[in-house]
Design a binder for these strands. Structure first.
Lengths: 160, 160
DNA sequence: TCTCACCTGAGACTGAGTCTCATACAATAG
DNA sequence: CTATTGTATGAGACTCAGTCTCAGGTGAGA
């Protein structure tokens, strides 16, 4: 059974009504690896222009609540969504020049996290771990020819 | 020499003109551990009502560019700023109920990060690592009496 | 003193969502 | 099959956090 059908199953189990609009939003979201909300709006409206922005956002919210979709605030570029349903847990590495996003797993982190959190008497619920760097390809290119990502004012501290 | 004077020094070295407005924004920012942009606007305007929102934001941008301030997009609550200048590098642990933010250092992560990034041919530039959990105090309280943080639609995947 | 770059406040504007509200549809009861 | 009730929908106003524009002000150096 593919992700689409399994996702529909999850929504059904949660008692979320599947309307044609929601179905289309889900199907379009599944065509992306990572997407912005407005990209999703465009792709949904390309397939059916009658569907409103509000419905797309509402459905995105529904999918998030159901744990099928995650939002990512990367330091560079606009907020970004991902259908995580059916994918193993992973963190992200982004190239600050070309915007490439790499998903990776690093089990050794997870153990360390538990340790840190317990040190403070906390119970871990979730985490976000994002790495930013320059990919090999962008390093090869001259600075002039690099496409800088849409500027975003605040830049996180540079790691030595 | 205190943080304020050293920060001014850094700005001067970067050729950033220190106006009375900028000076006040810097001084107010230094009074917080973490703050929202609007909190800073309020505290600046409390000290000098003539200073505009735009100037506060502009100065915040300047301080960011100069590497004195960092922005944090936590999953819960509004975006959050921190004067990191003069503080050692650290990551954050937030209680999703009371909003407490704990800063901690974990050198073992830094090494692991380098390893991961090299695996993909990247050159590491920065990272954000945020942990979310429930603090001991909030766990003791009944759910009903807990103050939930301002709801934010999209909730990141829960870690097993 | 002049100059010219840089800074400022006011307020319009933007992007990313969210909310409202009247209408439309779905599921169930009768 | 109709009525009822609950939920979903589209349009568009609204919000929040921030950014931009512009006319006027300020300040460091010639």
């Amino acid at each position: 059974m593919n992700r689409y059908l399994r996702a529909k199953q999850v929504l059904k189990e949660r008692g979320i009504l599947m309307t044609p609009q929601r179905d289309l939003v889900l199907r379009q979201a599944l065509t992306f690896l990572h997407f912005t909300a407005e990209q999703l709006v465009h792709s949904v409206q390309a397939a059916n222009p009658g569907i409103s922005r509000a419905s797309v956002y509402r459905t995105l919210g529904l999918l998030s609540e159901a744990g099928l979709v995650e939002k990512h605030d990367f330091l560079y570029g606009p907020p970004n969504y991902e259908v995580t349903f059916g994918k193993p847990h992973h963190d992200h590495l982004m190239c600050i020049h070309c915007g490439e996003i790499i998903e990776f797993q690093e089990p050794r982190w997870e153990a360390l996290q538990e340790e840190v959190v317990q040190r403070f008497g906390y119970q871990l619920r979730s985490h976000t771990h994002k790495l930013y760097g320059v990919c090999a390809n962008c390093r090869r290119l001259e600075p002039k020819t690099r496409r800088r990502l849409p500027p975003k004012l605040h830049v996180e501290q540079v790691v030595a």
